[in-house]
Write a protein that binds this DNA or RNA. Sequence first.
DNA 1: CTGAAAGCGCTTACAG
DNA 2: CTGAAAGCGCTTACAG
Lengths: 364, 364
Amino acid sequence: MSDTASPSPTPPRPAGRAKPRQSDIARAAGVSQATVSLVLRGAATGVVLAPETRRRVLSAAEELGYVPDPVATRLAAARNGMLGLYTFSTTFPTDVAHSYYPVLVGVEEEAAAQGQDLILFTGASRAADPTSDAAAVRRVRAADGCLFFGRHVPRDPIRRLSEDGFPFVYIGRREEPGISYVGADYVSASAEVAARLAALGHRRVRYLRENDDAPASTDRERGVADGARGSGLETDGLVERTDGGDVEARLARWRDEGVTAVITEETDTGAALSGLTAAVARAGLSCPGDLSLALLGTPAAAPAAPVPGLAGAISGFGVPMREMGRAAVRLLLDLIEGGPAPRSHLLACEPVAGATIGPPHPGR
Amino acid sequence: MSDTASPSPTPPRPAGRAKPRQSDIARAAGVSQATVSLVLRGAATGVVLAPETRRRVLSAAEELGYVPDPVATRLAAARNGMLGLYTFSTTFPTDVAHSYYPVLVGVEEEAAAQGQDLILFTGASRAADPTSDAAAVRRVRAADGCLFFGRHVPRDPIRRLSEDGFPFVYIGRREEPGISYVGADYVSASAEVAARLAALGHRRVRYLRENDDAPASTDRERGVADGARGSGLETDGLVERTDGGDVEARLARWRDEGVTAVITEETDTGAALSGLTAAVARAGLSCPGDLSLALLGTPAAAPAAPVPGLAGAISGFGVPMREMGRAAVRLLLDLIEGGPAPRSHLLACEPVAGATIGPPHPGR
DNA sequence: CTGAAAGCGCTTACAG
DNA sequence: CTGAAAGCGCTTACAG
């Protein structure tokens, strides 16, 4: 090509194979670069091109192996076909990462199905200080829209995105008005667990929740309380909070008080559950032999080894993480395409029969 | 701010809170936009700014809550702090996704540690036709560099990236010259497995590989053959290929031939392994009681239920998927920063003792 | 139906 | 030490 050495201003491209731009196509097809853009983006704008022009442009594009530069496309104020996923977590042990995996799978599946790429915004974890958190959240603007996930969410940076009209949806219920989310119906599912225990004959039950006010925890507590009231469980002293470390003493007390069943919750730390199962094991109790045990939420991972004292899988309900991920992607795409109308979904949780609840066996 | 209503040409921003650009900072600090860019990017260029100017710009940026637009940054030929991950797979069942998960974890960890975001390029799976595959691969240019992963890789699109000088690294060994990868040392690990069987007293062994020529399979076969030769195993008829469906008949034949151990490989489909374990179960054999069984590679997931006939975890070696992911990120970053010098690593595999190999027990 | 122009928000030589 | 200009590759009104 440029072997006939007439000094040209264009720098020599390696074998004419460097990535072609619209202007290259324009030159080849004898039209303007803007026309190339119109042809290539399809009839979206309602503009009608002469069939012959279309053909010339298309074949030149094909021949040159043109592919639009996603970065330029995005900068020019169009969409870039990228969805963000930003995960908040208190810390970043692998365990927590694993507990998020099902959501990722759902998000990835649906994104692929919709032809969208995914930007995983990492580093949420490292930011101890809120400032860098804000900066980190800002980066999500690189995507057309973003999914947020995690029990604890810094409100300010997100409020700002909202004010700027940036489309995003939470995975998990949120209290902030006018914000879209896809959540799990923890209230109903938790109430059902309480009712299940009542139906087995339990009356004095404890709900051990984590000392941490995420919406998921609030909903579960409300559901347990509602369910207890509705099914005849005692409600006095029903709810206790823990950080996971003091469960052994509580357990002894509960046994003295005649408690026959304990409900706890799964969170990203798993502190309440692991504290409880450890206490049960150390006390030499078995479930449901000595005590019924129910769990609100899916355990992060099946325990590597059988937990001593538990007859099998823990009874309670599972969270439809994967489906939440999928639904969130669909909702986000609606937001990006459609108007600003925020909507939200609450997905039903699946009851888990499990093997750790049974009729009451009063202790001591 | 703009309450003193002197008609300004700037459109009214909602409460002055819309996302600020460098030009906004420039106006506030009384400098040019280019200067803002210089200050904000740090002293990278060696340019020395007046401390006072720096201060003014920085504080204006802080006050306005400035965050650089990653898309614009990238388009202006700089980096945008995003690494791509492109996964090729023959198909996209959840099982396959799961088998890739450990790699993703490693990649994600290291990316986070290095302050890089991750773009997951999806849809590799859908592309039946090579053309759209090419287009899909092109998209990776949105990132500073890209990781490729999967047994089967379309060569043309990638060659093109290479010609264009786009930085990328494979996760898994590649044959193409001048390309960087982080692989597993399947040859050594496979040879060791063969030697382990020989040391237990086996002589007539079969290696059942998948009928599919990915580098990983080639390496494993070579390792098994090397190991067999080196340790005194019979090499005639050592290797057989399968698609997974016909294993039952082979197994019967092997027993007739006096084969005492079978080695197979793990792949993204898992066809050979699942075919083999199913055949063992149906034949009512037990491992290592009737037959020793070894596996080259980590099973995608621990089987939900114990596999009938197997005394426990399958013997063989594990692939350091997570560490490969981490190493690949580091290598990619080197590539992006440093020169074009391609380098590659081969990581050692961890032997897995397991419970399915033992001394030979000639069948029938 | 198509072209010329402006602009997305940044970086990067190049002058002063 | 800082400003003015050009450019990254595209989209989007706006004229013809």
